[in-house]
Amino acid sequence: MAERQFSDQTLMIISLVVAFVLTLIPQPELIRPIWPFWVAMVMIYWALEGNRLRHLGQAFVIGLLLDVFTGSLLGQHALSLLVISFLLERFRNQLRFFPPWQQAAAVMALLLNDRVLQLWVVIVGNEPWPPLLWWTAPLVGMVLWPWLFLALDALRQKRRLPA
């Protein structure tokens, strides 16, 4: 049991690191606006399925780290991950037992809500409106969600076997 806990923890950290790298990795101009919010998706997975990262404080700290690395306004991603974490916890029981496609739709709703929040920050910060394509990132997130879910689940199963 302790063995499994440890490797789950390791896997969680690895997946977060990978999400950070995916966020920072240089993207071609074309796909930049539709690049999904990887860190949020990984956090959603662990909160829903791994029973981890469920505390608001954890979401806040991860968000601050993301702000620091991406050179954003300090607190921008912290706020958006906070709100996602809150909504996840609020509707956790429903979300957990949704069929996969419905869960993917819920994830899209969370990410879309996040975009609205980010838009608010961006406009208060005196920036112009982002391009229309910017709104498609949650859709991409929805398409990728089942695969992310399956991949992380498979990795966890594999780790569980030897224990």
Binding site: L56, G57, F60, L73, L74, G75, A78, L79, V83, F86
Partner: peptide
Amino acid sequence: HTSRLVGYALVAIFLMALDQRGQYLDRFH
């Protein structure tokens, strides 16, 4: 849970305001 959300969110907004309004966080950055 909600009150904690409000607490953290206020901290985040406070940080953003500080960051937006000039030089307070320069040394931190």
